[in-house]
Amino acid sequence: MSFWEYVGSRWEQLLVDSYLHTSAVVQTTLVATVIGVLVGVAVYRSPIGSTVATALTSAILTIPSFALLGLLIPVLGLGVRPTVTALVLYALLPIVRNTIVGLSTVDPSVRDAARGIGMSRLGVLTRVELRLAWPAVLAGMRVSTQMLMGIAAIAAYAKGPGLGNLIFSGLQRVGGANAINAAVAGTLGVVLLALLLDAAYVLLGRLTMPRGIR
């Protein structure tokens, strides 16, 4: 069976796996963004807090994904839970780091003026600082998403959802008729989706970037 015949005969399964893969990555990126921005907001005023948060999240990123998944299995079991946890943890560093950088590079005079004209602390944060930090946060999300696309493939080892299942099934059926086809479909699928998501980020950037700072 040629690759295209394989794709033709399995396209429903491929679509489901692609959908599950993308949805896992997008959702975990969103969760990581919420957590990452909250952490960034909590620590960016304190040099020590920023240092600790960045050091911790960058240490997390150093951990091999296969090892982290292995550590999560005894605690969280198999399937979606270890997958989501691992993906969220990996996505944190770029978002936390960029949130801190984005917030701390807001012109102090803008902050001073905002306080001076009577904006509340929360108002300054939500209406000024986070808006100005948004391009940096978005860039962090983009890096995280790209990373997660690849890491999510490994999650299939712990029975996680997504295109990784095709790769592992290729590995298990080595020598079988469709082993290579499955692994190629899984790998190419991830690359393709990663490129599509990246394009989506460019579009999202265009749509959400405040015009005055573009």
Binding site: I151, I154, L163, I180, A183, V190, L195
Partner: peptide, 18 residues
Amino acid sequence: NIGQAAPSVGLLVLFFLF
């Protein structure tokens, strides 16, 4: 860039299969 967008596990498995 595309090489890095590919999942490492996919590259490994593909290289082995080929």
